[in-house]
Design a protein around this nucleic acid. Structure first.
Lengths: 209, 209
DNA sequence: GTCTGTGAACGCATTCACAGCA
DNA sequence: TGCTGTGAATGCGTTCACAGAC
């Protein structure tokens, strides 16, 4: 299939499929149909087939997909075959939680550097990671070839830090601050917006039947 | 306008609008046009007008929207006019970060109870909130009339806890564990899936031009 | 003239339905 | 027969464009 326009929703679901496949892999399953995956993830089976077809033909008609092979293919598609190196900006409560999150490593993500502007934190370690002065951000990013940042600073500081990351050559930012980041638009920004999700839930609770 | 089918994306954006309006309110702004909002949020102005029109006619032609009025309307739509009471399940690193997150209160969310299964944590306090034994979950939820839960437990425990919350009468769950929750489908579940977001960012970094 | 509210047009994503391969 | 891969049909959300209120 032609690969030109891949829906952004498809990209997101690839992570879902990967996690699910790895689960089946751990349980010793060798082969799996789109229906099997669909049942676990509670989605439509043809959606899964179409999603995968954007990237190639990974299945066998009548048989389904080889779990190990497909897992590898998706890891490669998402560029998670090597570990994804991440820099953490802001080691407050949230940042500390993220740095200690055991699931990150398992899923191929790796926080390899951490920065904070609080002098009392600089020089200390969290989960083995040295907390550094922001002065050294750029050189550390260059040295370790880091492309992705997690931004876990207070809202007021997010924009400044975003620009800082831009100048340091970061290409993607996961922003936990509830604000729109203005950075040059080849930098991809993803938002984790808890207030938005809670607002949505609140709305649904109100209109609960 | 007829209110029958409100797009789920619209509901999500209402939180965004609310936050933005409150910002303008703080800065003393009294009136605002859909264009002004659109510029700040970097979206299409008619999208904002259409979103709002699902819930009523809040603007004045030629003038725009009254900031205070619209903020109030949206709070009421999302049912955030009183505080939204939330129970936190799992007071590990992430749960602790959430319980201490100062922005929650400002935005009308309030964690009013916390539970953990670890006996060493039970009886202690975090940010003034007593960590309780899960045995008391149901009665606490009834007593405080809590409808929304944040689930911040290890993946292995998420499903069991989800069912527990279901039996306790919870109506909406914000789930941080990277797994699909099976609960009766009138319970609304929102997912915060960091691996998914990071996977997406990793994909875009790979295909960076 | 300004800016809202909204049908109509458009475009993107999902689902259907089936041809084709094992 | 079983299951994939994919055009075609559908559904949903966004954007356009403009009538109508101020």
């Amino acid at each position: 299939m032609k690969r030109d326009v891949i829906p952004k929703e498809t990209i997101k679901r690839m992570s879902l499929y990967l996690r699910c496949l790895n689960m089946f892999l751990d349980s010793g399953r060798e082969n799996i149909s789109s229906k099997d995956l669909a049942d676990v993830l509670k989605v439509n089976a043809s959606k899964i087939r179409k999603d995968l077809s954007y990237f190639g033909e990974f299945g066998t008609r009548g048989r389904g997909y080889d779990v190990r092979r497909l897992s590898g293919e998706i890891r490669s598609i998402l560029h998670l075959d090597g570990d994804l190196k991440i820099v953490l900006i802001g080691v407050g409560n949230l940042g500390s939680a993220l740095i200690s999150y055991p699931k990150f490593g398992e899923q191929g993500f790796n926080i390899v550097a951490a920065f904070d502007k609080d002098p009392r934190k600089i020089g200390k370690r969290k989960n083995g990671i040295l907390i550094q002065d922001l002065r050294f951000l750029k050189q550390e990013i260059k040295k370790k070839k880091i492309r992705v940042a997690i931004l876990a600073v207070p809202t007021e500081e997010a924009q400044v830090m975003g620009e800082f990351l831009e100048r340091a050559g970061i290409r993607a930012i996961l922003n936990f601050a509830p604000c729109q980041l203005s950075v040059e638009n080849k930098i991809k920004v993803a938002y984790v917006d808890l207030a938005m999700e809670l607002g949505r839930l609140s709305y649904h609770v109100k209109n609960y039947n």
